[in-house]
């Protein structure tokens, strides 16, 4: 905490803007998870948190650690790459699993299996 006292004011403001922006976008995505009515609509909500939400928090963290020169920003880059690559894969798998289950149960409004068309 002592090191942050002689941080330039604009750096602190920039970090504050980015971190609050990222957290707010993540919260918005989570609110969407609660408010949306169908599973397929909910599938879109967490992507807000994993794109701009994670991006905002990571950029804030990068700025702060570069300004303090406490450590290298490599972990943030690794996390950013990892989250951007893995989230689409998990959401796609989940979407396909939900589609498969809904088709087996013959829910209305779901596109049928390929062979049935």
């Amino acid at each position: 905490m002592n090191a942050t006292a002689d941080l330039p004011l604009w750096v602190a403001v920039l970090v504050a803007i980015f971190i609050i922006f990222g957290a707010a976008v993540t919260l918005l995505g989570a609110i969407g998870l609660v408010r949306m009515r169908t599973f397929y609509a909910r599938l879109h909500a967490p992507t807000l948190g994993t794109t701009l939400g994670t991006g905002g928090v990571l950029v804030a963290s990068m700025i702060l650690s570069s300004a303090l020169q406490s450590r290298l920003v490599l972990h943030e880059i690794a996390i950013a790459v990892f989250v951007t690559v893995t989230t689409p894969v998990t959401l796609m798998l989940l979407g396909r699993a939900a589609l498969y289950r809904d088709r087996i149960e013959k829910k209305p409004g779901i596109p049928p299996f390929e062979s049935e068309r």
Binding site: A5, A12, V15, A23, A30
Partner: peptide, 28 residues
């Protein structure tokens, strides 16, 4: 001054993230 801005903004961000976790928990 910088320290105050940083600790307040990070606390606020943590509050927002905990609220987001509560929303996820509700859905869970």
């Amino acid at each position: 001054m910088s320290t105050a801005i940083l600790s307040w903004s990070i606390s606020l961000a943590q509050l927002l993230l905990v609220a987001a976790m509560a929303c996820c928990l509700y859905r869970l």
